[in-house]
Simulated assay, not measured.
Amino acid sequence: MADEQQETSQGEMEGVNCLAYDEAIMARQDRIQQELAISIPLVSDRQDLSVLQSEYAEEDTIYQLKIKDPHKKYSYIRKTRPDGNCFYRAFGFSHLESLLDDGKELQKFKAVAAKSKLDLVNQGFTEFTIEDFHNTFMDLIELCEKQPALGELLSSFNDQSVSDYVVVYLRLLTSGYLQREHAFFQHFIEGGRSVKEFCQQEVEPMSKESDHIHIIALAQALNVSILVEYMDRGEGGTVNHHIFPEGSEPRIFLLYRPGHYDILYK
């Protein structure tokens, strides 16, 4: 009997040791990924689009072929840190950058952004909770009114606290729009979750990646058109694109590769 107990105890210990070992490996991988992410700017300088070629092995024929397609329409890329917040950061920077020399559109956007906080409060979001995030967002818009050098806007987006506050507010706007239009979006949500549950789990938390549903909602919430070029391992040597909302004239051009968004320039 004692021998059986000892064998059971040893088996349990081996199971615990294996679990601890697996957790240690996962923790180490997470640390490596975090260190790599931190070494990349939140928003980079603009680079020649040819830098993409060096990111894939020469024998990776699928991507090496697909990389050639964006070159027909675009010349430059601005990278964002792959931290799960890249869509919102790319959206925020790209749109404000486009407004630096378009005062008329900037004023329209400022009016929409100013009203957006009240819309969220009327939906039940706590004003005290969202106020600081909204103020930071408005501060950046007002900075653009002063027509600063591009480097000043870039510095703001590379200031972690400022940049993350903008991301948080854009996530809240996305959540707010999805919940306002819950009857429409409910059909696209899997797993038996309500729209509110989806927003609490997949939209509002930092580092949660974005998909079609997030892009549609933010584009509609701020009345900004976005074109996304999708580059994946699908068949064919071309890159497919989608415009949000459909039929609109895009101001923002993004490159999507599985799990990540960067900014494109013609």
Rank of each mutant, 00 (worst) to 15 (best):
F125K: 02
F128M: 02
D102C: 09
E131F: 12
L143E: 00
A149D: 10
F109Y: 13
T126R: 15
E152R: 15
A149F: 14
E105V: 01
I130L: 02
E142C: 10
I130M: 01
T136I: 10
H134R: 01
K146Q: 12
L140Q: 04
K104Y: 12
Q107I: 09
E131T: 15
G103T: 03
L140G: 01
A149M: 11
K110S: 12
F137G: 00
A114W: 11
K108C: 09
K110M: 13
F128E: 08
E142D: 11
K146M: 10
M138Q: 07
L150D: 12
G151C: 03
H134D: 01
C144F: 00
F128P: 00
T129R: 15
K115P: 00
L143A: 01
F125H: 03
F125L: 06
V121Y: 07
G124C: 09
I130A: 03
L106M: 09
D132A: 13
L150S: 08
K117A: 06
D139T: 02
G151W: 08
E145F: 13
A113E: 11
V121Q: 04
L120S: 01
V121G: 04
G103E: 05
L143N: 03
Q147N: 08
K104S: 13
L120M: 13
N135C: 08
E152V: 14
D101I: 14
T126L: 14
A113W: 14
K108S: 11
V112W: 00
E145D: 10
H134P: 04
A149E: 12
H134E: 01
F125R: 02
G151M: 05
K117E: 08
D101P: 00
K146E: 12
Q107V: 07
I141P: 04
E145H: 12
N122C: 10
I141S: 07
K110L: 14
L118M: 11
A114I: 15
K115S: 04
L143W: 05
D139N: 09
F125M: 04
E131N: 09
D101C: 12
E131Q: 12
I141H: 05
V112N: 02
D139C: 07
S116C: 07
G124L: 12
A113Y: 13
V112L: 05
V121W: 07
L150Q: 11
A113H: 09
L106A: 03
E152F: 13
F109Q: 04
Q107S: 01
K104L: 12
E152T: 14
M138S: 03
H134Q: 03
E127N: 10
G124T: 07
L150T: 07
M138L: 13
N122E: 15
F128A: 05
T129K: 15
L120D: 03
D119Q: 15
A114V: 15
D139S: 06
L120C: 06
L118C: 04
F137M: 06
K115E: 06
V121R: 05
I130N: 02
E131Y: 11
D139W: 08
E145A: 14
D101F: 15
P148M: 10
A113N: 06
